[in-house]
């Protein structure tokens, strides 16, 4: 290989100053999105591993129970500490699984939002109607924001147990509750990213950056959105089916 016989006038350029065909840029960006999804898949696998490992190990039978105090508060703790008897002995408190209905509802909402975005993209590519796309993308964003709100509701209802000793008190979480907090938290981060992307699609299409001819970014977002919806559904199936021992 020498300079003379390897360099020729191959004019396919890249980025800063050189023009690149939109299809070339799209192909590269789509590959990048799939690579990020691959990384996300490994993370999801690690999350499933964590959930199943904790459930399977069930250390000291504490997957859904823990030594603590039922329904007590900081004020109760202070009073107990100041009393002559001191803190009573902790008892094993059991927590039940979280509402399967709410878990499924979140998954359903995300699936619906993915369907909306898919529909919006299809409409854009077929009817070239950027204004309609903008409105429908905004609708998808609102729906996924609903999933964010529902996730916050879920986080507030994760069963916790009042744990205390002579030095401190805290609301602590069993293995099951911990795993659910992780899953809901990670899902919520994904939903927030989707909301950002959806809002971006809506604004960009309203400003003419996404049109019936320039629809590649809509497809990129849709690919990631559908992946998040599928992973949410599968994780929901796992956590609802596999929670009791």
């Amino acid at each position: 290989m020498s300079l003379d016989d390897t360099i020729s006038t191959h004019s396919e350029g890249h980025d800063h100053g050189h023009h690149e065909a939109p299809e070339v840029v799209d192909s590269r960006e789509r590959f990048g999105v799939w690579l990020f999804i691959a990384g996300d898949m490994v993370t999801l696998g690690a999350i499933w591993f964590t959930y199943l490992y904790m459930r399977g190990t069930n250390t000291d039978g504490h997957w859904m129970s823990m030594l603590g105090y039922q329904g007590h508060s900081y004020a109760w703790y202070e009073n107990a500490l100041n009393s002559s008897a001191g803190l009573p002995a902790a008892t094993t408190i059991h927590v039940g699984p979280m509402s399967a209905g709410l878990i499924w509802l979140v998954a359903l909402v995300v699936a619906v939002s993915a369907g909306i975005i898919w529909w919006a993209e299809k409409l854009l590519r077929e009817s070239k109607n950027a204004k309609a796309f903008s409105n429908i993308a905004l609708l998808g964003t609102v729906v996924v924001l609903l999933a964010v709100i529902l996730s916050i509701v879920q986080l507030r209802h994760i069963p916790s147990i009042f744990v205390a000793n002579n030095d401190s008190q805290v609301m602590a979480y069993t293995g099951y509750s911990s795993a659910m907090m992780m899953i809901i938290g990670v899902s919520m981060v994904h939903f927030i990213i989707l909301a950002f992307l959806g809002l971006g699609l809506a604004i960009r299409s309203a400003r003419g950056a996404i049109t019936g001819e320039k629809w590649f970014q809509a497809r990129l977002v849709r690919i990631f959105w559908v992946w998040v919806a599928i992973s949410t559904l599968v994780t929901t199936l796992l956590t609802v089916m596999v929670n009791k021992l």
């Binding site: 964590t50 904790m54 069930n58 250390t59 000291d60 039978g61 504490h62 997957w63 859904m64 129970s65 823990m66 030594l67 916790s160 744990v163 805290v170 609301m171 602590a172 979480y173 069993t174 293995g175 099951y176 509750s177 911990s178 795993a179 907090m181 992780m182």
Partner: peptide, 10 residues
């Protein structure tokens, strides 16, 4: 106060 690595919490 989760219990991923805490035996007393499972």
């Amino acid at each position: 106060q989760t219990s991923f690595y805490v035996a007393s919490g499972g």
